[in-house]
């Protein structure tokens, strides 16, 4: 028995991968556990938002490999992200403890961290994700929004055009990647206007044109303040919206009582009293 346990241990690949987030703000959001993953890794891959953040990571580990060079002009982002999975897996297969570092939360609106974990596990390697503080977390704090108060939907702007999503205007709606709508590769900026006109058309199915929306950017350096701009929905197609901004729609209609369930709840309560 012992020998078979030993042989399993000996044959189990030692390579592993941890996908961690550095959070949004340098110095403020990195969790002790994420830092430890970085420090204990053999190789660190980095997909962060700012070159200062990348240099900060280099302080924590001598072998930090930027994933930025895999982007290319006119190259579809999905090709880049597949390559990321491959370069990370190459190190895992070589028996390395790999740490992949992403800005924010590694699993929020990101494809490759989820994918690399799926691939690694399928091949029998240890793989895990550690949560990080995302733009979502920051916006609740900076804009004073409680997602539980009216409900809160999170949608990706392009997906809202490609698929028949049902928007619930009685709750908050957070629209991600508005600055990138219709943009599958790098250096196709300037195409946003027409795509955003379509986005406006879609949004006006649920919202009035004069609805005040918030364009939000949280601080990425600790010497910055959040940037919060308010404009009307009709101004959205022509507003400057960067890749680092998120658009928040307030509830535009009152919550509707569900009479049927209220009555059934009351009936239950009465039964219990009787």
């Amino acid at each position: 028995m012992t020998s078979s346990v030993n042989s399993i241990t000996a044959e189990t690949p030692r390579g592993s991968i941890a996908c961690v987030g550095v959070g949004m703000t340098l110095g403020s959001h990195l969790t002790p556990l994420a830092r430890s993953h970085i420090q204990q890794a053999d190789v660190v891959f980095a997909a962060v938002s700012d070159n200062v953040v990348e240099m900060w990571l280099e302080r924590m580990h001598p072998d930090v490999r930027s994933l930025q060079p895999y982007y290319g002009e006119g190259k579809p982002r999905m090709v880049t992200y597949r390559e990321w999975v491959e370069v990370m897996m190459t190190e895992v297969r070589a028996g390395k403890r790999v740490c992949a570092v992403f800005y924010g939360h590694p699993g929020i609106f990101a494809w490759s961290p989820h994918k690399v974990i799926e691939v690694a596990r399928a091949e029998g390697f240890a793989a895990r994700m550690e949560p990080g503080i995302s733009a979502e977390d920051c916006l609740y704090a900076d804009l004073g929004i409680d997602p539980g108060k009216f409900g809160c939907q999170h949608l990706e702007a392009s997906q809202l055009l490609y698929y028949d999503h049902e928007i619930d205007p009685t709750g908050y709606v957070v629209l991600w990647q508005v600055g990138m709508v219709g943009n599958r590769s790098i250096a196709r900026d300037g195409h946003g206007g027409g795509h955003r006109e379509l986005l406006l058309e879609r949004l006006t199915q649920d919202y009035p044109l004069d609805l005040e929306v918030t364009i939000y950017r949280c601080a990425t350096l600790p010497i910055e303040q959040p940037r919060i701009r308010r404009l009307t929905l009709q101004e959205l197609p022509h507003a400057e919206i960067s890749a680092e901004e998120t658009v928040v729609f307030p509830p535009a209609k009152p919550l509707k009582r569900n009479r049927r369930f209220i009555e059934r709840l009351a009936a239950l309560d009465n039964e219990q009293v009787a």
């Binding site: 800005y103 990101a110 997906q159």
Partner: peptide, 16 residues
């Protein structure tokens, strides 16, 4: 350095 931000592609017909 121009840094690209990680973006997801959730449109139909993507490579995966």
């Amino acid at each position: 350095r121009v840094m690209q931000l990680v973006q997801v592609n959730l449109s139909p017909g993507r490579e995966d």
